[in-house]
């Protein structure tokens, strides 16, 4: 080994040690994923499991590549529905939380049901939603909104009602109106709660989108990933089924990452750190 190579190696090691901590934290799960994918591929080669039961990673990749334009369009359709439902959930969740924070009667009367409603399985509600809104985008967005509104509503309600009493006294002392208290104290206090609710919801929106499209996507002009899951399972195209699962999972992770990033930026001035 000449001097130059040695130097290069040393600087490479140096660079690895200097990776940002976030990237360094990503290394072990990425290594594990690679290990699983390689083992999966090797097992397929050795045991030769029928494709319909379990396609190999390379077969899934090949199937996805073949249908790349349809899958890309489906991913876009699903993302659009998920984002619309998410935006609606943010709007509805925050406004209902505002009502709950203002009216104790409304909170006492309705809030318990909101918590109870979270436990009703979305798959059971979906057919009802389809009856009300018909097949297609409206129902899909409604299902996404229903599944993702509760974490936002409950979190923001908690945030708006858990204002530091000392700060509330301070505002009262200086004659703050209810509107000033809301704008200058309650909403900023609730922001971290809103973001933590939105992070939970962001994962749920993709679940809602897939369930919605699975059950109501048949009437859409351009089908989303959920409809591909439905089609692929009835047509026994397991590689497309797997590809759809991977893509929708990735969408979920991306949306979660986006909300986390927006949250971290918005909360940069707050004292506390967000949970993992």
């Amino acid at each position: 080994m000449n001097n130059l190579t040695r130097q290069r190696n040393r600087s490479r090691q140096h660079n690895a040690a200097r990776l940002p901590p976030q990237l360094r934290a990503l290394l072990p799960p990425l290594l594990f994923l690679t290990f699983v994918l390689v083992s999966w591929q090797l097992i397929e080669v050795w045991i030769n499991i029928p494709k319909i039961l379990l396609p190999s990673p390379l077969e899934i990749l090949a199937g996805a590549f073949e249908k790349r334009s349809q899958l890309a369009s489906a991913a876009w359709i699903t993302s659009r529905a998920a984002l619309s439902g998410f935006a609606l959930a943010l709007l509805l969740g925050t406004s209902s939380a505002l009502v709950f924070s203002v009216s104790q009667l409304a909170r006492r009367a309705i809030y318990p049901y909101m918590i109870l409603l979270q436990t009703v399985p979305i798959v059971a509600i979906a057919p009802l939603v389809i009856i009300w809104f018909g097949g297609g985008l409206n129902s899909i967005v409604a299902i996404i909104t229903i599944i993702s509104v509760f974490p936002i509503a409950t979190n923001v309600t908690t945030g708006l009602t858990s204002v530091d009493p000392g700060l509330d006294d301070l505002m009262t002392l200086y004659g703050a109106s209810n509107w000033q208290k809301l704008w200058k104290l309650r909403l900023p206090t609730a922001l971290p709660y809103l973001i933590s609710g939105a992070r939970v919801s962001s994962g749920l929106t993709i679940v809602g989108a897939i369930v919605g499209e699975y059950m109501a996507g048949y009437q859409s002009q351009s089908p989303g990933l959920g409809y591909y899951v439905f089609l692929a399972s009835t047509n026994a195209q397991s590689e497309i089924l797997y590809a759809s699962i991977f893509i929708s999972t990735t969408l979920g992770i991306l949306l979660f990452g986006l909300v986390t990033l927006v949250g971290k930026t918005a909360l940069a001035r707050w004292t506390f750190e967000m949970e993992q």
Binding site: G166, L170, L173, Y174, K184, P188, L191, W270
Partner: peptide
């Protein structure tokens, strides 16, 4: 004016904006 046992500062406001709060409210 009331000075509490805790500083009761709004954590999302700078020192300047915390001091300005009573003027804003009045």
């Amino acid at each position: 004016a009331f000075v509490f046992q805790d500083p009761t500062l709004l954590p999302w406001r700078t020192v300047h904006d915390n001091i300005r709060l009573p003027l804003e409210l009045s």
